[in-house]
Structures are given as C-alpha cells and as structure tokens.
Design a protein around this nucleic acid. Structure first.
Length: 573
DNA sequence: GCCGTTTTCGGCCCGACTGTTTTCAGTCG
C-alpha cells in the first residue's frame, strides 16, 4: 500500500468527520496526519513491516492514528472509515468540496432535501429549492450551479500527477515480464495534458495472454471490464480506467502514434498520408497492402514528410506547420532547470525548515533558490508581517553562509490585496532579492478590479514576477477573470516575469497563456511552490506544461545561471 | 486526535468576506 493511498483514506476520514460535525480538532488531526504521510519520502507500509513504533515519530501521528495505519496496512481494513462511509452517500463528499459549499451546507442539503450527489443537487438548484433553505439564498444557488458546471466539465478526469504515477508503475511492472519487448504510455498521459480521462498502455509481446493476465492481477487494478485477444480494459482502484493493447513489433510505432493523439493532430497526419497515396492506421503506414512504415513513430512521420514531433505538441495548434519548415522548438527539459524560486518554510505554512529546504534543493541539483514565505494577509498560513519577515531574512542570511554550492535569495510571496495594494510596504519589498506578487483572495472580483490589482503590482518597482497568475485550481476552480493581452503588455513593458506554477493542482499559467506570454518576450519562471521537501519534486509537471506551450530553454529564466538570471531582472531601485 | 508537558489536560494557524441575516454562520485560504 502506497503512502498516497493511506493519506487519501485519512483525508476522506477527516472530510466525513466534518460532515458528522465531529470535533474540529479531531478533523484537523486526521488531516495533519494525511498531509504528513502524503509528503513523506519513506514508505509507510515498510515502516509498518519493520518497526511500527516509528510511525509515532511522524508529526501528527499519535497512538490512535498509528494503530489505524497498522491495521490498514496489515489487514487492509479501516473500521472507522467504513462506519463513516455507511453514514453518508459517496456523492456528498464531492458536493462538500464544491466551491461555495462546505461540510455544514452539504450536510444540510442532505438532511433537508435528501440530496445524495451532484446530479440531484443540480436538479434541486435548477428547481429553485436550494434557495429556499435556511442559510441559503439566490446567490448561493447561483454559485452552486456555476461550481457544478465546472465540475461537469472536469468530469471523471484525474490530475496528470495521479495518472502518471499509476501509468508509470504499471508500465514498469509490465516491462519486467519475460515476453514483453517494448512498452509505452500513450494517450493524453503521454501528451502530458493537465488531466487524463483514462490511460492507454501499449506493449509488444510474444505472450499477449501473459501480459493481460499480469495486468489483471496488478495490485492497482480493481477489475477487468473487457478482454479480447489484443486489448484489455481494466478499472483501477482509484476509479481510473486503463486500456492495454498488445501490438506486433512491426506496428508498435504506428500504434503509439495512433493512440497518442490528439485526434486533431492525427487527422492532419492521416490526410498527409492520403495525399501521398498511402493509408495510415494503428497497424502501420500502407502502400496498398504493403506496409512501408510502422515500427517506429519517426519512420511514420518521415514517410509523410515530417520530422518526429514531440507528443506534448500534438494538438494541431501549429506544430505541423513548424515541422514542415523544420522549425520545431527544441523543447525545455527538466535538467535545464537551475533554480526554484517559490517555496515555503515553517516560517509560514511549510513543513520544513530553511536548512531542510536548502538541502532538499541541493539534492535536486538546484544551483539557486528563493525562499518565499507568505505575507501577513494569508493569516491562515501564518503569513509574515514586516517585522517577522525581516527576522526570517536575517535567519536565511545566516544559514546560507553555510552553503557554498547553492545560492539562496531572500524572497517573499506577497499578496496583492483586494483593494490593489500590496500586502507589504515598499521599504520592506525593497530589501528582498525576489518578490513574487500573487492573488489569493477576491478571485471572483470583476475583471476591471482584477486587472487593476495585477497592473498595480506590475508597476511596483520591487515586484519581480507574478506567481500563479490566475489562481485557478485544475478541475476545481476557474481562475480570476484576467484580460491576458493587457497583463502581457504590462509585464513586458515593466520587465516583470510570469510564473508557471508547477504544482499539478495549479499549472498556472496554462499552456496557451504561457505560449502567448513567450510571444510577448516575457521571461517565464517555473517554480514548485513547495510546502515540504518532497514538494520540490513537482518541477517536472511545470516543465511538461512549458513543453506543451512550446517553450525552449532560453524562454525560461530559471534555466540560467544566477548571474545571467539577475541580469534578466528589472533594474532594482 | 495530537502535542507537550506544569505527566493529565488545555490548546490546537485565524482574519476577512459573503450572503445571509438583522447580528452571524459558513466558507475561504
């Protein structure tokens, strides 16, 4: 059992306890334990096997929760969770996590209107029944409908981080099978979309039955939904569905190309084949009955007059034209990244100390970082006022002296307040090496006010970059209503960078806006926004997003050495 | 339910906003 699974059960327990109106601190205890375990690099299941007493050394895990984890790992059972699940319909958890709703309102909807899931909530809201409930009203009803619409659009899709973790684990295990020669992930997961609706795996094997049997028995697989001689569809324990296709070696490239998509990209590629008197399908590229290509993707692209196109670009958004002119961008790679300029410590809401974060960054090969704890407005995250921030910086100054192979910038993640002021005075910001200005609150303000806030921040001479510009959460919450052309113009005029926040829940800027920002000549920074040492590992998702935006090493500021990076920063007054 | 300790129980990140009320509960981050 993986840490994430354990953390998910604890998190679900916390949510269900909330619905039950249990003691708020008990709820928090489960949530804290879930977070600790989710952020942990050692496997909890192994700790249970070796020395279960060690669990109690984890912060937020005491006698009770440790015992529950042991039982979960050893016996696969979690009685408290089972009992809670029996009390509330599963759909209620989704409802309570909709923006504008929480445990209290969700419980009331369930109690008063018997609502069990999102569909029933929608029907009740449309019928105007929600507004009649005590504590609700017309506005709340509208908020609910808007949240449901967002939820519908996301549907059953899961974040790329979750999809990849599952796909890569299964792929790895299939690769170890004796009969399997080649194996690959295809589909949206290979294209590194923000979310995946399902997973596609391809293998070549002398023993198709063996590969499918191994998949059916895989510990991530819950059930087999369909099975034929070359294709098997299974449902994973987390609900995601996965297609495995066993293809002949001479068709592997064709199948990979075909099942990677996108549909729009493939339509154009197939048309190019037709124009050349050829036919392209998942088995190969054919001249009449004769296969002329199919073993690799590259030979298929070559046969239709193109260089191989990276999967991240395959959306028919201009990549085929670039390929024709041999002008495909040399996309950014994870190893190009030299720095991480957005992270938190225990000074605000991070879980690791300054020293721990510096060392974790070194282990990941970063040459310089910025420590950017929250400003005071984010009181829930223990944000820093001027006095505490200055003390924090003094501490960082002292500690960074111990390290000769990594530079540490004095940073801050400064809120842009609802009234467009910055959360810290200019004299404080002037002392920072790196000021990241961000929106956290009032994201639903009208466009004019949002733009006033962003432009005001950009005009401030101390602001270096705008972090997670829209504030969106993938699949959960649309971001602020930004007029991007104005944002880009202002950022370009004032030499302010824009962030791609690499957290898979954010990925903000998105690929299209990151591409547009690059067109304006704005340097992009890709940062993890880590709240723990393990949080630094999400950099790859930010890099993937940049690749989808067509960005190269030179488009991304934190691929440079510190000296070169500082030259890119606007002149500091 | 966890933590730290004054070792047995009190404190646990909280201020602002929203939409509902007519003084505040619920939600947000």
């Amino acid at each position: 059992m993986h840490n994430l699974e354990i953390a998910n059960r604890l998190e679900e327990t916390a949510s269900l306890l909330e619905l039950q109106e249990a003691n708020a601190f008990r709820v928090r205890a489960y949530r804290n334990a879930a977070r600790t375990i989710g952020d942990l690099s050692e496997a909890v299941a192994e700790m249970v096997g070796e020395n279960p007493e060690d669990l109690k050394n984890l912060s937020g895990v005491g006698k009770d929760i440790a015992a529950k984890i042991v039982q979960l790992v050893r016996e696969g059972s979690f009685p408290l969770l089972a009992e809670l699940r029996a009390q509330f319909p599963a759909g209620l958890l989704q409802i309570m996590h909709l923006p504008g709703l929480g445990p209290k309102k969700a419980a009331l909807l369930h109690k008063e209107l018997g609502i069990q899931n999102a569909e029933e909530l929608k029907a009740a809201a449309v019928a105007g029944k929600v507004a009649e409930l005590k504590g609700f009203g017309k506005k709340t009803e509208q908020t609910i409908l808007a949240s449901l619409e967002q939820f519908d659009r996301f549907g059953q899709r899961v974040l790329i981080s979750e999809a990849r973790a599952a796909a890569e684990r299964i792929l790895h295990d299939l690769e170890l099978l004796p009969g399997v020669a080649q194996a690959a992930i295809a589909g949206s997961c290979r294209r590194r979309l923000e979310t995946c609706g399902d997973l596609d795996l391809l293998v070549t094997s002398a023993d198709a039955e063996g590969a499918m049997a191994a998949l059916a028995q895989h510990d991530l697989v819950e059930s087999v939904l369909a099975k034929g001689p070359t294709k098997q569809r299974v449902r994973l324990r987390d609900g995601l569905e996965l297609d495995l296709r066993v293809v002949p070696e001479e068709s592997f490239g064709a199948a990979l190309q075909y099942f990677t998509g996108s549909k729009e990209h493939n339509i154009v590629i197939r048309r190019r084949a037709t124009e050349r008197g050829l036919k392209l399908n998942e088995y190969g590229l054919f001249d009449g009955e004769t296969a002329v290509a199919g073993r690799t993707e590259a030979e298929i692209y070559e046969a239709v007059g193109l260089p191989w196109i990276p999967p991240e670009l395959r959306e028919n958004r201009g990549e085929i034209e670039l390929a024709e002119q041999n002008a495909l961008p040399d996309l950014l790679k994870l190893e190009d990244i030299q720095a991480d300029l957005h992270m938190h410590t225990t000074a605000s809401d991070g879980t690791a100390s300054i020293r721990e974060m510096i060392e974790a960054a070194r282990e990941r090969g970063r040459k310089y970082i910025a420590i950017t704890d929250h400003s005071k407005r984010v009181s829930m995250a223990n944000g820093l006022d001027a006095t505490r921030l200055r003390k924090h910086w003094a501490e960082i100054r002292k500690i960074r002296e111990e390290y000769s192979d990594i530079d540490v910038l004095l940073g801050v993640e400064c809120d842009i307040l609802e009234n467009a002021d910055l959360d810290l005075e200019d004299d404080v910001l002037a002392e920072a090496d790196w000021v990241l200005a961000v929106l956290h609150y009032g994201l639903k303000q009208p466009r004019e006010q949002i733009m006033l806030r962003l432009l005001n921040a950009i005009r401030n001479p101390h602001v270096c970059a705008i972090g997670h510009p829209s504030g969106r959460m993938v699949g959960r919450r649309a971001g602020a209503d930004i007029h991007y052309p104005d944002l880009f113009k202002a950022a370009a005029d004032h030499g302010v960078m824009l962030e791609i926040n690499a957290n898979p829940h954010r990925l903000d800027l998105d690929d299209l806006q990151a591409h547009a920002a690059r067109e304006h000549g704005i340097p992009i920074v890709i940062n993890t926004d880590a709240h723990s040492t393990a949080g630094m590992d999400v950099m790859e998702y930010g890099v993937d997003q940049a690749r989808r935006a067509g960005l190269t090493k030179k488009d991304v500021a934190n691929t440079r050495s510190l000296k070169q990076f500082q030259r890119l920063l606007r002149t500091r007054s």
